[in-house]
Design a protein around this nucleic acid. Structure first.
Length: 399
RNA sequence: GCGACCGUAGCUCAGCUGGUAGAGCCCUCGGUUGUGAUCCGAGUUGUCGCGGGUUCAAGUCCCGUCGGUCGCC
């Protein structure tokens, strides 16, 4: 072990007797969080429609930002000159950055989300010309101005170092769904070689020059193939990564997603924090916490909010659509059991009106409510794991 | 009083030389999982001002009439 991450720690303080769920304490230079926890997406150094102060009011512990978007705009050097992402965006708690792998490859697949979910069968790949993958890395055209950009394991590490988040991700290829197993295997193997290059680059700079300011996660790939997932998970286990992330194609159904995680985590390092990239919904939190996932990140709380969907404990399908006509004259608070004004003061009729009228305050209120609701979910999940009452809690949350 | 133009979905309008109506918005519902705020998808809505006439067939042509806008005396 040449990398020891002196300023990071992950202690598992409690294990659920009935499942793989666990309580952990993840320490970073910007504070510690209790896991399981939820990481909110602030792609371009901003949680869409929610200020840092409102994130704190919603009892948020940790956020993330994206290498891909920030390298293009405003550029990593500018953020470094600003004193790093924490100062730049005024978020002083723990933070994570993605490596840029997912976003780059999503250009080649039209919408990556469809690929991961196994949709768009037979379509996609129409923008393949926008990018090129080689052993060296990835070349693509900037969505900002069209200029050609190159991203490699080394440059991803350099950019993430300049951004300065606490937790960072190795550069990987997010393997599409509609490729054959052979392609998935070769892609996974390249991601492993890229992982080694990330570790080497990381060790060259971070662990020495900056005194261990960052913790690097390896990413498990392998598509929907259990044997590949095992190989990839064992790879991350046997390298000096601080944490393990589950990424790549997760299949086309809930069942397939569980298979993927189930084929990965038993072979990952047992004492490292496990992050599930890009998931999830409330039902996903319950499912994957039981499989040993410690942190989640997903755009869905804030994206759904901007489109008028509010997470609600016990609601059918987890959510309500505030734009529905039935809320037009519902003068009760959005969520009386919520713990912020956006939830327990503002009424459904009012927020319904804001959406109908196109007022951005509607999106702000729902976004903050959804963030607060997911944070509340995670708090209750942690308590339930400690008390052994996860099943009961799940019944309360899910219709 | 005369003349011109216009009356088509809740709103704004498109429908070429005749072949029983469309768009956008609104409205209703759905979608969104390593971010796409103002997005994507589906659906509801019409005695084409009214009355005659010509024609196999009229939103479309002709006559009359009502309403509106503008101009002239």
């Amino acid at each position: 072990m040449t990398l020891n991450y002196p300023n990071f720690k992950f202690d598992i303080t409690h294990r659920d007797a009935k499942s793989g769920a666990r309580i952990g304490r993840l320490s970073t230079p910007h504070g510690e969080i209790e896991t399981p926890n939820y990481i909110f997406c602030g792609t371009k150094a901003a949680i869409k429609a929610v200020s840092p102060a409102q994130m704190i009011e919603a009892q948020t512990d940790i956020v993330l930002a994206n290498t891909y978007h920030l390298m293009l705009q405003p550029g990593a050097d500018l953020i470094e000159a600003a004193g790093g992402l924490h100062k730049f965006m005024n978020w002083h708690g723990p933070m994570l950055t993605d490596s840029g792998g997912f976003q780059v490859f999503s250009l080649g697949e039209g919408t990556m989300a469809n690929e991961i979910k196994g949709k768009n069968a037979g379509k996609g790949h129409e923008n393949k010309s926008l990018m090129k993958i080689t052993e060296e890395g990835c070349t693509f055209k900037s969505y900002i101005d069209g200029r050609t950009i190159k991203l490699t394991p080394e440059s991803s590490m350099e950019i993430q170092r300049k951004l300065g988040a606490d937790l960072i991700m190795q550069f990987d290829e997010c393997t599409p769904y509609h490729v054959d197993k052979d392609y998935t295997a070769r892609s996974m193997e390249m991601s492993m070689r890229w992982g080694d290059r990330c570790l080497a680059e990381f060790e060259r700079h971070d662990s020495t020059a900056k005194g261990g300011a960052q913790g690097l996660y390896g990413i498990v790939q392998g598509g929907v193939h259990a044997d590949l997932r095992r190989i990839s998970a064992e790879y991350t286990r046997d390298r000096d990564f601080f944490g393990t992330a589950v990424g790549g194609c997760l299949g086309g159904s809930d069942a397939e997603m569980e298979t993927v995680v189930g084929a990965s985590l038993p072979y990952a390092h047992p004492n490292r924090p496990v992050h599930f990239l890009g998931i999830g919904q409330i039902k996903d939190v319950f499912r994957f916490v039981r499989m040993g996932v410690d942190t989640f990140d997903c755009v869905i709380p804030t994206r759904l909010a901007r489109h008028g969907t509010a997470f609600l404990k016990g609601a059918k399908g987890e959510t309500i659509n505030i734009k529905n006509a039935k809320f037009r004259d519902d003068h009760t608070p959005l969520d009386e059991s919520g713990d912020i004004p956006a939830s327990n003061i503002y009424t459904k009729a009012y927020i319904h009106h804001l959406f109908k009228a196109g007022e951005i305050l509607g999106m702000q209120l729902l976004a903050q409510h959804n963030v607060a609701t997911m944070n509340r979910l995670m708090r209750e999940v942690r308590i339930a794991i400690k008390n052994g009452t996860l099943d009961d809690l799940e019944r309360q949350w899910l219709y």
